[in-house]
Nucleic acid binder design. Structure first.
Lengths: 192, 192
DNA sequence: GTCTATACAGGGATAGAC
DNA sequence: GTCTATCCCTGTATAGAC
């Protein structure tokens, strides 16, 4: 579309900044992930970061948005077993990107303030996630002991809560516990 | 503790500071709860706060510790139904102290860093809480479909995760969802 | 459009006077 | 035990160079 070379450069820089931000958070923790730290990794000044993203909080929100695009949280119609597998895969994968888990959890708390740039992001994402759970687990049949909306809330809450526990104690088996919960609340059709 | 609080005035000041801190967090959010803000409520300077508590993080950790004392998270041997009621009461009560919920969640994330003063607090509290769940729900009988340790992890994770959701969307019915989960995982002996 | 330099307000923390 | 003064670091707004 655009023939300008300078346009492409900006896009590349944006990506570079987002990746560096995630990298720094993963290595040094959220607290030490200052604009200065991130800018040094990229090789620019903190003001350059604010040129692309309006504020630190918006930058971090963008990191999460990018992750969601990649992960494809989208409304695919799956069987309950496929949904189970996909969901557990995401959790397993999170184990390998501690920076994302830290960032997500931290912004979850900060975004409680309605003025925070990630506030609507979380409201939105949360709703879409639960919709997807309802579609894939709840509607298909009546195996679950909970109504679909409550089931979705519980799965989401457990997933978020397990991340908090895992960050403090990395020996916590997120996928294992999550699998046990899903099987307890929504028993698979026993193959025997 | 005993050495530091030797003087009655100092003890009173400490209490006053802890309560003011909680008050400010509840009214203005965690982000705006600076030492300056809190100090103004108490009527002293920020330096005075740091005289009693070594750092801002230690001060906030102390607020949580005090809450736990008051709430009595202790190992009381209860029936499963009593435990259920007590647990739901705590959650219902949390609804009325948003400052505590915000503080707890925020520190949960920050304490992921092993250097954070609240790190061992969370490890410890988490273990005691799960112990108490195992004792009161798991050991008594075999109604649950999950093994006791997993059940405890799930209840804890859901509780923590629901707080995150509730902070962003206060219409979330924490006690209701929690009750539904407990009943699904650990069915009450049907009275009929 | 991309970025540096600069300046500023606010934060937490420390040293030393009272 | 409390305050004042100071220090350094943070995020950010602005001006202007390229």
């Amino acid at each position: 579309m655009a023939t300008r070379g300078s346009y492409a450069k900006g896009v590349a820089r944006r990506e570079e900044i987002l990746e560096s931000a995630l990298d720094v958070i993963g290595r040094k923790g959220y607290q030490n992930a200052s604009l200065k730290e991130i800018a040094e990794v990229v090789g620019v000044t903190p003001a350059a970061l604010l040129h692309y993203f309006g504020s630190k909080e918006e930058l971090f929100t963008e990191v999460l948005r990018k992750r969601d695009e990649h992960d494809g949280l989208d409304p695919a119609r799956l069987s309950a077993d496929e949904a189970r597998t996909a969901f557990l895969d995401v959790i397993r994968h999170n184990t390998e990107v501690p920076g994302l888990v830290t960032l997500f959890s931290r912004l979850s708390v900060d975004a409680a303030d309605p003025e925070h740039p990630a506030h609507s992001y979380f409201l939105d994402r949360s709703a879409r996630l639960r919709e997807s759970i309802v579609d894939n687990f709840g509607a298909e049949d009546r195996r679950s002991t909970l109504d679909p909306d409550t089931l979705a809330r519980v799965i989401q809450a457990t997933s978020d809560g397990l991340q908090l526990q895992w960050m403090i104690d990395p020996t916590v088996d997120m996928p294992g516990i999550m699998a046990a919960l899903i099987d307890a609340l929504h028993p698979p059709t026993s193959p025997a």
